[in-house]
Nucleic acid binder design. Structure first.
Lengths: 162, 162
DNA sequence: GTCAGTGCAAACTTTTTGCAACTAC
DNA sequence: GTAGTTGCAAAAAGTTTGCACTGAC
């Protein structure tokens, strides 16, 4: 499915959602949806705000962004993550399942895919719970920070032995 | 392992960590570690702050709590979660690995264990990354909300048919 | 015309930071 | 003694809220 096709489809899904819930179909809402579906990977409210002002030439307030994102989450068109300080979001329609590695030192987030892992999670029997979606966050140290840390520890041990 | 034993062990691990990284062994840090290992389940900074003031009779500033928690996370004695608005923490030593189911309706967080799932995640090869811990958050609907929802939908349909 | 939705600014919450005082080493 | 830590208060960062105005229905 190409990018324009996806945008059309999600716009339609959103329209149905808005109708079903008695919400108004404002230009702001569609502009936000469009912008989000132009972004690859994660974004936060601030990034979205800048993107809309700069590229879409459609200024919306942060309050509206927060309001609209909640609708989009409920319509299952956006998912919310919470690593680092600010909430991160990403489009969810037509996007391959992926997991996240988060470096506890530098905060860098890397995505990776793994079919076996995905299957294992999705096939798990859950006690009295119906799964809608999930997030797997793997914390640890990226190779860069790991190297820096080893060096530091080594130095401290040497210092002590003097 | 009984509770006091665990506390002694984690204190020792922390001491080693502090030594290795050239940090000082202050009474505040050990008091915080002790308090955390007296808590079952999740807690946030504010709860920890109150607990220390009320029960331990050891007042530490929030700034120190934030600072120390970072050390404890790096020492792998505490893990951090981010559901809801504020960060949630929990002790991690000698605590069974568990996953989280979060109800998107009522926000209730339930823990569950699953050996197969745990193995599948831990045995996954990660590209240029050393795992320290991970969090699996499964979103969906708990049985209670699910029932309430079905009822509601049923009522709406009946109402419509009148 | 009405009321949901928007923009703006203020309020609020959580976390970080700068600085003086303190203390572990 | 001195540099890492602490406490405090101020600031920053992210999000929510109240209110007047706008525009979708």
């Amino acid at each position: 499915m190409d990018s324009q096709n996806v945008k059309d489809t999600v716009r339609q899904i959103f329209t149905e959602y808005l109708n079903a819930h008695g919400h108004r179909k404002t230009p702001e809402r569609y502009a936000i949806l469009d912008t989000i579906y132009s972004i690859d990977g994660h974004f936060d409210i601030d990034t979205l705000y800048s993107l809309m002002a700069d590229h879409e030439n459609f200024r919306v307030s942060r309050a509206t962004l927060y309001n609209t994102i909640i609708l989009l989450i409920n319509a299952r068109l956006v998912i919310k993550h919470q690593f680092g300080n600010s909430s991160q979001y990403e489009k969810s329609y037509n996007r391959g399942t992926h997991h996240h590695m988060i470096c506890t030192q530098c905060g860098k987030v890397t995505e990776f895919q793994n079919e076996d892992l995905q299957q294992a999670i999705e096939q798990t029997k859950l006690p009295r719970f119906s799964l809608s979606h999930y997030s797997l966050y793997i914390y640890g140290m990226c190779s860069k920070c790991d190297r820096a840390n080893r060096k530091k520890v080594k130095n401290n041990i040497q210092k002590k032995e003097k």
